[in-house]
């Protein structure tokens, strides 16, 4: 990630984050991807301790407090680098966001990957909405049998959708394993590339699925979640 030339003294850069000659802090390139920024290989199983260590070390290096007495250019660079670090850390720490980010990096845009929508899930979601609507319309004091039935039905749906979400996530993590194995192989091999594309596509489909399920689960939890007391099973 070393830059070719110091922004200040124009000398050839020898240091990584600071100019070897004038000791001015250097901006991290805007094109730098988060994995490179954090000194991590482009793998989906991340060494979380290593990620945290790098994050803390670089945060100390670039922390705006250390540049409070420096000139304005250096303060700006310190702030910009810190912002980039924070964004990178937040993105890579969470496995779901990490996968979404990797797909964007590798496929240009997630939209470039077309996946067929899960039709059976859509039907289920829309049916559930009817029950949810009816349930919401009944007041909390309502003790009718209908309300009780609806509540039980919605709770059962919540449990089954939560299980579905867990299943989608476990299938997603299987793809993490596949990706990491493929990534370790040679880059030029067309068969490897095709296998990688297949993994990206599968992950994209699973992530979309997960988004739909998560939305409904959140709605269900909001409607029946807290009221049951017993909550999660």
């Amino acid at each position: 990630m070393a830059r070719s030339m110091c922004w200040h003294c124009q000398s050839e850069m020898s240091g990584e984050y600071f100019c070897g000659r004038c000791v001015k802090v250097q901006p991290l390139s805007k094109e730098l991807d988060y994995f490179t920024c954090m000194n991590l290989p482009r793998l989906l199983h991340v060494d979380e301790q290593a990620l945290e260590r790098t994050f803390y070390a670089l945060s100390r290096t670039f922390h705006p407090d250390y540049f409070a007495t420096k000139d304005e250019s250096q303060q700006r660079i310190s702030l910009g680098n810190t912002a980039l670090l924070n964004a990178a850390y937040r993105m890579l720490k969470d496995p779901i966001q990490r996968a979404e980010y990797l797909i964007r990096l590798e496929a240009g845009s997630a939209k470039d990957i077309r996946t067929s929508p899960p039709a059976d899930l859509f039907d289920e979601i829309l049916e559930l909405q009817d029950d949810l609507e009816e349930f919401r319309a009944l007041s909390a004091e309502d003790s009718s049998a209908r309300r009780q039935t609806l509540q039980e039905k919605l709770e059962a749906s919540r449990r089954s959708l939560e299980a579905r979400k867990a299943d989608v996530e476990s299938r997603l993590f299987d793809q993490f394993d596949k990706w990491d194995v493929l990534h370790a192989q040679t880059h030029d091999d067309p068969a490897t590339q095709a296998a990688k594309d297949a993994v990206l596509k599968t992950m994209q489909a699973l992530l979309s699925n997960r988004t739909y399920v998560t939305n409904v689960v959140n709605d269900l939890v909001a409607a029946v979640g807290e009221r049951t007391g017993s909550g999660r099973t």
Binding site: A110, T115, P117, P118, A119, F122, D123, I125, L126, Q204, L207, S208, T211, Y212, T214, N215
Partner: peptide, 10 residues
Amino acid sequence: IVGAPECGDV
């Protein structure tokens, strides 16, 4: 029946 994978709308 269509969905938006980005936001989860159906």
